[in-house]
């Protein structure tokens, strides 16, 4: 698949997020604003036509939302700490550091320093904090792939949480795909086998978000050129609407919304999640762009367009 096709898809997705952000900026919840911010940044690093205006609009909104919320909410596990820290990195390149996130980051760093070792599924946070200079160094450890998968009636899909944790570990162990994983050749082969299996299964089950996370993990362990990764990428590109969002998820939206009215906030969240997940996976396929900009972002040297 040519890079231009991937860039065009990301550009369209960026446009969808831009329109949504401009139109509904005051309705964005903090988690939505974080996703929109990351989506816009992903668009800016991979698509030729950049604009800093919409990034600024969403950054302002997120800043305002975080300022309005109390510190306990920000630090209570209410939000995904990884998304918070990455959003904060983007806010910083827009010149808008968040005091609330800063406090959280320092508390988290202090907690990690008290521990003998960083918990496996917090390796990503540890990496981000070390890049910000809040932790002396980021200690990666080999991802535990020797863990046997439990055979159960529900199949491997019954262990979705386990897969998500594995992906989080790989993100942390590779600095979000910016450096190679520390594992034996056999360990890497094992990871590639298991992740490819989950990739096919999750695509078949139309679990787009999980598929995108697994795709990112496969790219991070240098399995970018494998057949299953190429097929998965083509599949994801086919899941894009003309307006730019990813995923044909009306059933999921209806189920999640239930009797609630209006449906729009639910739809916005669902499509933001799937769109940013797909954009992120596709952006990582454009390897050089991703590594250059991600490293700059995490070290605080990235500048907004």
């Amino acid at each position: 698949m040519p890079d231009s096709e991937a860039r065009r898809a990301i550009g369209q997705a960026r446009e969808w997020i831009r329109c949504l952000s401009v139109k509904h900026v005051m309705e964005l919840a903090p988690a939505d604003a974080m996703l929109a911010l990351i989506g816009l940044w992903l668009g800016d690093i991979t698509y030729v036509h950049k604009d800093s205006e919409s990034l600024g609009v969403v950054a302002n909104r997120l800043q305002q939302l975080l300022d309005d919320s109390d510190q306990d909410t920000v630090g209570s596990g209410h939000y995904d700490t990884r998304l918070l820290l990455i959003s904060d990195s983007i806010l910083r390149c827009c010149g808008q550091a968040s005091a609330r996130i800063e406090v959280l980051a320092r508390e988290l760093a202090a907690d990690f320093e008290d521990l003998d070792s960083t918990p496996d599924d917090y390796l990503g946070e540890s990496f981000l904090l070390s890049k910000r200079g809040l932790l002396p160094r980021h200690v990666t450890m080999p991802v535990d792939v020797s863990l046997e998968w439990k055979i159960g009636l529900g199949g491997i899909s019954a262990q979705r949480t386990h897969v998500q944790n594995l992906c989080r570990q790989i993100e942390g162990a590779t600095g979000f795909g910016t450096f190679p994983i520390e594992t034996s050749r056999l360990g890497r082969v094992e990871l590639e086998f298991r992740l490819s299996q989950v990739l096919l299964g999750s695509l078949h089950s139309y679990d787009i978000e999980l598929a995108a996370a697994v795709l990112r993990s496969l790219v991070s362990i240098q399995a970018r050129d494998s057949r299953s990764v190429r097929e998965a990428l083509r599949f994801l590109l086919l899941q894009q609407w003309r307006d730019g969002r990813f995923g044909f998820l009306s059933t999921e939206v209806r189920l999640l919304a239930g009797e609630r009215s209006p449906v729009e906030p639910v739809a916005r969240r669902v499509y933001l999640q799937s769109t940013v997940a797909c954009m992120w996976a596709i952006a990582m396929m454009l390897r050089d762009d991703w590594i250059v900009h991600a490293v700059r972002l995490f070290t605080g040297t990235e500048q907004a367009a």
């Binding site: 159960g152 009636l153 529900g154 199949g155 491997i156 899909s157 019954a158 490819s196 299996q197 989950v198 096919l200 299964g201 999750s202 078949h204 089950s205 057949r227 299953s228």
Partner: peptide, 17 residues
């Protein structure tokens, strides 16, 4: 053979025994 392997991956994943 590749298709059979891929399909085994998929149906082991969803538990379609």
């Amino acid at each position: 053979e590749v298709a059979l392997r891929d399909l085994l991956d998929i149906y082991l994943y969803v538990g379609q025994w």
